[in-house]
């Protein structure tokens, strides 16, 4: 099941990248996507649970608009800090634990922390321990308030 799913994704990707529909190209696309799926069918989805994977993807799509808004805010903040002549920064290193355990949850949280205002993930390990570098005191406080963790928790389900 995993194998079929991965090879379908690979074949769709092949079509999107090639953009042509010759018989020979389609045939080699099928052959190569089956080959790639044979080698790496346990990497993309991990566990056998395709239903969980797809529901998480759907819930992740609902998380994206908030993330995009945060990315815009982060860039405004950073432009201000970079171009200010005195450069108002006061770096902090903070650590905290999350209740997230799944790979996808920790990955999403780590990348979201890196993309949102004033914080960068230094360490994110599988036990849910995070070490974060914040560029000033306020972003550190905002992160510890835990709004983002709650949102990622909802993606994880």
């Amino acid at each position: 099941m995993n194998f079929v799913f991965t090879s379908i994704i690979m074949f769709v990707f092949w079509i999107l990248l090639s953009g042509e529909f010759h018989f020979l190209l389609m045939l080699s696309g099928i052959v190569f996507s089956l080959f790639v799926a044979y080698i790496s069918h346990d990497l993309l989805i991990g566990s056998d649970n395709i239903r969980l994977f797809s529901t998480r993807m759907l819930r992740f799509c609902r998380y994206v608009p908030w993330l995009v808004w945060q990315i815009l805010l982060a860039n405004l903040d950073l432009v201000y800090r970079t171009l200010h002549p005195k450069m108002p920064i006061d770096p902090q290193v903070i650590r905290f634990d999350t209740a997230l355990r799944s790979d996808i949850g920790i990955t999403v949280l780590a990348n979201s922390i890196t993309l949102t205002p004033g914080t960068v993930t230094i360490v994110a390990n599988q036990d849910g321990e995070f070490i974060v570098h914040a560029i000033a005191r306020k972003p550190a406080k905002d992160l510890l308030a835990g709004e983002m963790q709650a949102k990622v928790k909802r993606v994880e389900g």
């Binding site: 860039n75 950073l78 970079t82 770096p91 890196t114 993309l115 004033g118 570098h133």
Partner: peptide, 12 residues
Amino acid sequence: YSRIHPAGKSDT
């Protein structure tokens, strides 16, 4: 650590 901030956010 602070150079990571522009490289990770503004560049992206």
